[in-house]
């Protein structure tokens, strides 16, 4: 493989990973606020279908994305409402919505399979695209990729540098204490569940309008679960989550290459590769093993290493605010 080819592969990994990155950022926001929206797989299918159909019918790309976002926001609103207002289990609601989104997308999308529709146009950013190596990989892409990259930094800044982000995280860690500090935990959980859901919806539409253009039944099936796994893998941090999404894309690309090199090995084995990698890394960063590895680390390095490697889920993830 020469340099040009390598750059092309890397650019394609970035493009493939972009919708995942968007979904991961959205779900990270939601889970950081203490709600787990498990319906991602169904949401993405339904919004991929809706997004495509809306864009196809109106011939307007933006309307397609807006429709996808609306579907995602609506599903998320159901999760938020049933858990916050009706005190139902978030896991149960999420599962039901996953199944609903899947079947609904298959049913409503029947008439629209394998049709042409608008797709996100390629747009190289002047000047930046001429930076050696990075330019063609990152800045010779389309709007979706740029949006995903901006989103990583925006959500990260929001979560860890802004005051609203502080409140958002507090609702996910210890809602009772957050409430005592005057944080409106319920409103805030609604807000971030809906925003997170809208982003997941955009991610769904991104598949049918950009990465895997068009609609067919089960178009994005499985990708929602992958996004959920990557949120955990990324330790509820957008930057680490994005790295996870890229790593996932890279192993998939590697699997394709390997498969061509070793045609006698079953396809299934190579498809399992990304998962094996993910499980391996999760084990590696598990607190026990990190703790053991760090016992002999120099004290000056211990703290920052620990901070980087050890992650815990938001302590109140999936629980309700209890007061009175």
């Amino acid at each position: 493989m020469d340099n040009g080819q390598l750059i092309a592969v890397l650019a394609s990994i970035l493009l493939q990973a972009s919708p995942l990155i968007i979904a991961v950022c959205g779900e990270t926001l939601t889970e950081r606020a203490g709600i787990v929206n498990l319906s991602l797989d169904g949401t993405m299918l339904l919004s991929a279908m809706t997004g495509f159909v809306a864009a196809h019918l109106t011939d307007n790309l933006m309307l397609g994305f807006a429709a996808g976002a609306a579907v995602g926001a609506f599903f998320a609103l159901i999760v938020a409402f049933s858990s916050i207002q009706l005190k139902q289990s978030q896991v149960a609601t999420g599962f039901v919505l996953t199944l609903l989104g899947d079947s609904l997308s298959a049913f409503l999308g029947q008439e629209y399979t394998r049709l042409p529709g608008p797709s996100v146009p390629h747009f190289a950013i002047p000047i930046l695209k001429d930076i050696p190596i990075l330019g063609p990989i990152i800045f010779n892409q389309d709007g979706l990729v740029y949006f995903a990259i901006l989103l990583i930094f925006a959500t990260s800044w929001w979560l860890f540098r802004s005051r609203p982000g502080l409140e958002l995280r507090s609702a996910g860690e210890r809602p009772e204490a957050a409430f005592a500090r005057g944080v409106n935990v319920r409103r805030l959980r609604y807000l971030y569940t809906v925003i997170g859901g809208a982003l997941v919806g955009i991610a769904g539409a991104a598949y049918s309008l950009d990465v895997k253009i068009g609609w067919s039944e089960g178009h994005t099936r499985g990708l929602g679960w992958i996004a959920l796994a990557i949120v955990i893998f990324g330790g509820w941090s957008p930057v680490r989550g994005a790295i996870g999404a890229l790593l996932f894309g890279a192993t998939k690309a590697a699997a394709t290459v390997l498969q061509r090199a070793f045609p006698e090995v079953s396809v299934v084995a190579f498809n399992a590769l990304p998962w094996l990698l993910m499980i391996g890394v999760l084990l590696l960063v598990s607190n026990k093993i990190v703790g053991r590895l760090l016992v002999n680390a120099p004290p000056a390095l211990k703290r920052p290493l620990q901070r980087m490697l050890q992650v815990a889920p938001p302590a109140a993830l999936g629980t309700e605010l209890k007061n009175e």
Partner: peptide, 16 residues
């Protein structure tokens, strides 16, 4: 104490 164990001291102080 009604504080935020995973937070930094500073973040905990700023919250609210």
């Amino acid at each position: 104490p009604l504080d935020m164990p995973p937070f930094l001291v500073l973040e905990n102080y700023l919250l609210g």
